[in-house]
């Protein structure tokens, strides 16, 4: 048996969170932002394209809902560019996730993206795209730790056998 991943089965298993995304409209409407059913469907299609191009797979709900909830209060997102911006952010999210070696959790990555988008980028997706990865990598470097695995197993697991150490 080989262990290839079947794209169509993965897509079938990935929860189509159209309904969940649709529920976000209630929350985001207070910022004047809503998505039509057509836009939600389109974003789902773009989700799978983004996953494919970034070499990732996703089995549960996608990142779209958390993305919306994180960015909906941004002063740089308007009704006119809402769906388009979400699509770009979604694509960037999966790209950053891969390029940063999955070091950050979804929430941490979204937080960094939002802070750049609202801060230095001033709503510019191009800026976020070009500078985002560098900032993320700097953030990761800052919290790099030496896990010291060797010491853990030498001391705890085989302590009683140290006399036989080779």
């Amino acid at each position: 048996m080989d262990a290839q991943l079947s794209t169509h089965i993965i897509q079938a298993l990935a929860v189509k969170d159209c309904e969940l995304v649709s529920q976000c409209n209630q929350e985001t409407s207070k910022y004047g932002l809503t998505l039509t059913d057509k836009e939600i469907t389109q974003l789902q299609v773009q989700r799978f394209e983004a996953l494919k191009s970034s070499g990732r797979v996703e089995f549960g709900q996608g990142i779209l809902r958390p993305l919306i909830m994180k960015f909906c209060d941004s002063q740089f997102i308007h009704k006119s560019n809402y769906a388009e911006t979400l699509a770009a952010l979604q694509e960037m999210f999966y790209y950053f996730k891969t390029e940063s070696g999955d070091y950050l959790s979804d929430n941490e990555l979204l937080t960094i993206m939002k802070s750049i988008f609202d801060g230095a980028a001033q709503g510019s997706l191009e800026y976020l795209n070009s500078m985002g990865l560098e900032t993320i990598c700097r953030a990761i470097k800052g919290c790099d730790v030496d896990e010291g695995d060797d010491e853990v197993y030498e001391d705890e697991e085989y302590g009683e056998e140290d006399e036989y150490d080779v």
Binding site: L5, V57, G62, K97, D102, D106
Partner: peptide, 14 residues
């Protein structure tokens, strides 16, 4: 903490 993983990792799990 993450909704997605790299495909290469999914293949290892498989």
């Amino acid at each position: 903490k993450s909704t997605s993983i790299p495909e290469s990792l999914a293949k290892e799990f498989m």
